[in-house]
Design a protein around this nucleic acid. Structure first.
Lengths: 149, 149
DNA sequence: AGATATTATTTAACATGTTAAATTATAAGG
DNA sequence: CCTTATAATTTAACATGTTAAATAATATCT
């Protein structure tokens, strides 16, 4: 029974389209990460710390696109498991500095190549040109929504 | 300090790009829905029920792209608030049938036009052609990941 | 029919998302 | 200095995401 009003059909929803695409992509990565007992979010944190170690919570939050309350819990978890180490900044005792432990770094080095291979497979399946085009469109969408001159 | 290894930079991550785009879009809709005490997920359920009322949990789950445990809680919530009504199927007592109440329908009719206006504004800002292209790319991405002939 | 498999849905347990309020430490102003 | 504002982070409270296990009803098989 179709709707009797003139509301746009639900299957033409931008948030849904983006969600479905993301789910499809994540479906590739999640089992792989789970095999190492990592959530996608925990992995993002390890990844960002590998790129530039010794970050403050707020910096990680911005780079990982995670809200502070989520990040607090994630870092507590990773810290308990000995994958990262927290220390208080000497300059400003409100701030924490998070670094990868040896173990955290080793885990990253183990997972990263496999993860990269999965990403390349997706790029190959979808097509490199289309992938780049998609990135550009997504970025332009964000930029225009945030600053619609 | 950039990473000293050859791992792809974090800022070129497809899941992140999709997440950021989705967040940008949602930022437009969420405050509007919150003004009516609805989460995006609750709104999805109302929307699907408006399109075809009298659906089973599993059908709603598929249409809304919500996992069953989430949907269980969402429908309980909406039911408590008198926006939907649950009844047990007479053919198969494992199944429930969910319908919009009068109040649920009224709320939908109130929100839908405003929501549609926001969507049109985004389409206009981004450009209709680009929006269509984005939909096509996202759909093709999903299709190729799920069935990489 | 009666044992067994399958299906629809819920519950459990834990992680994350999200907004508001609380905490603690530094910065700014009088 | 001392009060007040601001900033970094956490806590609280509730909704959702996610996987596994439990429930309950129907279907299947012999």
């Amino acid at each position: 029974m179709k709707s009797s009003n003139n509301i746009r059909a639900f299957d033409h929803s931008l948030p849904m389209a983006l969600l479905k695409a993301r789910e499809s992509v994540m479906k590739t990565f999640v089992p792989h990460l789970r095999a190492h007992d990592l959530s996608p979010q925990q992995w993002r944190v390890l990844r960002v710390l590998n790129e530039s170690d010794g970050l403050e919570m707020t910096e990680i939050s911005k780079n990982c696109f995670l809200l502070m309350p989520s990040l607090t819990r994630i870092v507590q978890n990773l810290s308990k498991r000995g994958l990262v180490l927290r220390s208080v900044s000497t300059k400003d005792r409100r701030r924490s500095i998070i670094i990868l432990t040896e173990r955290g770094n080793k885990l990253f080095q183990l997972i990263a190549p496999e993860s990269e291979a999965l990403y390349l497979h997706i790029t190959d399946t979808f097509g490199y040109g289309k992938m780049e085009l998609l990135y550009e469109l997504l970025e332009e969408l964000v930029q225009k929504i945030n600053d619609p001159n």
